[in-house]
Amino acid sequence: MVETDQAGVPWTAPRPRVPAGPQVPGGPPSRATRLRAGLRPYRVVLASRARSQTAYRVNFALDLVSSVLTAFAELAEIWVLYRAVTGIGGLQFHQILLVFGLADLTFSLADLMFGHCDNLPTYLRAGTLDVFYLRPQPLLAQLVTSDITLRRLARASVGLAALIAGLAVNDIAVSAASVGLLAVALVSGVATFAALFVTAAGLQFFIVDGREMTNAFVYGGRYAATQPASVWPHSLVVVFGYVFPMAFTGFLPTLVLLDLPSPTWLPGWLGWCAPLAALWSWALALLCWRWGVRHYRGGGG
């Protein structure tokens, strides 16, 4: 993953040079120009990553198929259970479809951007993380843009389809409140899941070999987010309702949208508090990340 340098980006330059752009001769470069120049290395790397994946066509096609299949199997598991009974946790299948759509779409989008933070233990063991330290860019920003996996877009399409179907089959009044709630839930959901990936990455500095431990809240979190949280015992409400606020990504906004009764430990008005959940998750994530980066002592290369 270190051959990022092949994208022809001048990593060794202390600061990216400002290209000749629409700037006043003699005057300082405008903010927009500086921002564009600053983002250019990331853009070049991402574009080259995207190109490299489409190069092996058969493997790329299989990748897309398997990503769609993964999301589809997750939906099928829920469908099989709801098909066997009339309702679980006070929700019926058409209602859980909305929970699944919100949770899975936001998870896939976060996975698209932050999912390869999961590769950190590989970099740590191989000692290749040290290369990231040599470059004049923030470590986390480099890690996030070091790879983009297009197949994850295919996965997001299943979540999107489920969300659209969920919105269509449920009787939802189109109002400023419902549209606003949906937008807030989507943005906050992506942020919350992204924070989980960063939290996991921060903890990887300590546990390297025990990477599966963080799967408990990253992928366990994804699984929890698609469940009706009303069936959880108190211990799970604490862990996946509040510490890793998974109920805020799909379940709670759905309760508000559909005006459903809420469980005692997760009152319905919390559906509006998804941004707070996202903020809390990011506070936790940045804390873990800083803690991990400070703990790191190099690969000994």
């Binding site: 009974v85 599966e212 431990m213 862990v239």
Partner: peptide, 30 residues
């Protein structure tokens, strides 16, 4: 790989608790 085994155990148990919540709710609903 002791730490890896511990990591796997933590993940398995979390998934187990989540599975238990939803599957037992399904049995009760049936």
């Amino acid at each position: 790989y002791r730490l890896a085994a511990l990591g796997g155990l933590v993940a398995n148990t979390t998934f187990g608790l989540l599975k238990m919540a939803v599957l037992l709710a399904t049995v009760r609903a049936a």
